[in-house]
Design a protein around this nucleic acid. Sequence first.
DNA 1: ATGGTAGCCTTGCTA
Length: 255
Amino acid sequence: MRVATWNVNSVKARLGHLCGFLSSAAPDVLLLQEIKCQDADFPRLEVEAAGYRVEVRGQKSYNGVAILSRHPIEVTADRLPGDPSDEQARYLEARVAGVRVASIYLPNGNPVGTPKFDYKLAWFARLEARARELLATEEPVVLGGDYNVIPEAADVYDPADWTEDALWRIESRRALRRLFWLGFTDAFRALDGRPHQYSFWDYQAGRWQRNEGIRIDHLLLSPAAADRLEESGIDRGPRGLERASDHTPVWCRLS
DNA sequence: ATGGTAGCCTTGCTA
């Protein structure tokens, strides 16, 4: 089973790229983030015509996540537990072909020192609590999405540019590490030892042309899923297209 | 050199 994650930065603006990726990469499951539309505005017919079922947790203008799958989708959560007042559409979880998957759009958290950074860390704590619950099920679990965290110096072109950024702050990296200490595996890092393999390049300052990116989109595998990990990769193709998302898909294959 | 781009559907916010 192949699982991919992609922050598309508006599913309506990226519909052509999305359909191209579905037909060329043909993942069994695609986890989308930043669809930037309400449920009713998701281009469902086009995606269904490509052979995929669709579950959406949308929101007007910002955020929004979805799960696309060639197999039936049984939604198990359409929001991250732990804060009923949180209205932001950043979490959708489902069971697909015996694997628990989640599409995660973790808060960016900038600027540091504002409520936005506090929200990021609080959201991370809720995710950790949910991850513990999912581990207890002993089902294979794939927590995929835009984590908005650069795990290590090898995942950024120059850490000095990111010193005060919420994506690199030690509090954010520690929060991600806590998921690793729980037993989750970074699917890409587990199989690819090369440094400086990125999943995001800013639109500004020619970052793509200069290959000055960061790796912030991750597939975290529970032990039962990691036991089945056979292959992983980052597909840079979509980032090089005209009017591309600033992120590109990350994928893995489980036996 | 505090710039630069993109999408929302606003005239600013978020990233």
